[in-house]
Design a protein around this nucleic acid. Structure first.
Lengths: 206, 206
DNA sequence: TCTCCATATTTTGGATCCAATATTGAAAAT
DNA sequence: ATTTTCAATATTGGATCCAAAATATGGAGA
């Protein structure tokens, strides 16, 4: 249930800034308000929703500053994850990365925005999980979640999809050669492209 | 209420590993179980408690690996916070840091473990908040929370208290000279001392 | 005596109900 | 006509109640 709610937000079905009507949402999720409120509390902790006493929950919106901050923190944490992961990468790990990348390419070719987002995420998380630092991976995951609602916009553009595919290939090559420096570098440009694109897509004021 | 519960855990009144009896705790906090469960969900998100379906909540315990991981992540994030903060530090900020440090020294002299923990925390958070990155500061805060239950043990030792005082002075000096490098370096040794001490204090197995 | 199984008790998870607060709308006064 | 006030309504927050799951208890059989 919590997963379903999270997906509703990260896929953008519940729009950023929209107020959350507990009664209606509980109805929709076939559950009572108590467990829904618990789920909202965990999502609040993850920064996906905000809460004001006696006014209720809203789907969180990202300001430009927030976006930059999230991406800067990701840069720091993901570099650490990659540097830890590279020496630990097994052939099986590389196979899984390769498989994830094939999914990305398939989704990119099909223009399937949702599939693209999930495949892309799987690719990165597969890598981060190889670092053997579960807390770090979890932190990174929640940082991704906070921008996921906007990511679908990013993948709406075919050019962006193509670029992502190429950048992943570069990362994968670096990983195969066990070059942490290069892997980090390719991921940094990958991220930079995303953040510049997203900045222009972000709503004007918030 | 949530704050009170969080303090009960971070001060160690609720021991790590202890199961949380909702009914009794709700009683104690003068509240019904529903808001308590919401509070527990947010604490779960912060990593202060763990939850198993139909078995309930427990105060989280830290393994050695967890401890090292938390401190490594703190190292990364706090370095960023300090480097951002240093160029932004105003004289008023330095005054606040000085004041916090005086509290630390007073608590250290008095041997007041609890006051020591809160003053120490205030000192560091005051600095981190100067970075102008609220999300980063929040992340660091929650990382601190996860080890707070053990921190009181650390301050139980007078030698540790004395060392903390000295290390803070070194950091404060570096900040006054606007030397980010030195500030980061002093904080790194500060952290390293803490983590080595804590490792020996940690329960044997978990 | 020890083990295993059935039952009782405790504890959690979820649904409903009630109170407190905020929002909306209409009427009255300027 | 505009603004202000007050009442009606909607929505959240919290308490109680019920069902489901887990744990403890005790008795029967080996």
């Amino acid at each position: 249930m919590l997963a379903e709610l999270r997906r509703a937000i990260t896929t953008g079905r519940l729009r950023p800034g929209a107020p959350i009507r507990q009664d209606a949402l509980a109805d929709e999720l076939q559950v009572s308000r108590v467990p829904l409120r618990e789920a909202l509390k965990t999502l609040e902790g993850e920064g996906l929703v905000t809460h004001q006493a006696h006014k209720g929950y809203c789907v969180a919106t990202l300001s430009l500053d927030d976006l930059r901050e999230v991406y800067r923190i990701r840069e720091l944490l993901e570099e650490e994850a990659v540097r830890r992961a590279v020496p630990l990468l097994t052939d099986a790990d590389l196979d899984r990365l390769e498989a994830a990348q094939r999914d990305v390419e398939r989704a990119a070719a099909a223009g399937d925005v949702l599939a693209m987002a999930t495949a892309n995420r799987l690719f990165h998380m597969t890598l981060f999980d190889c670092a053997g630092m579960p807390r770090l991976a979890r932190l990174i995951r929640t940082l991704w979640d906070t921008t996921d609602a906007y990511r679908s916009m990013y993948y709406g553009d075919g050019g962006n999809r193509e670029r992502v595919v190429k950048e992943h290939r570069a990362t994968l090559d670096a990983l195969r050669r066990r070059s942490a420096d290069e892997a980090v570098a390719t991921l940094d440009v990958h991220r930079d492209h995303a953040v510049t694109e997203l900045q222009s897509l972000l709503p004007a004021s918030p």
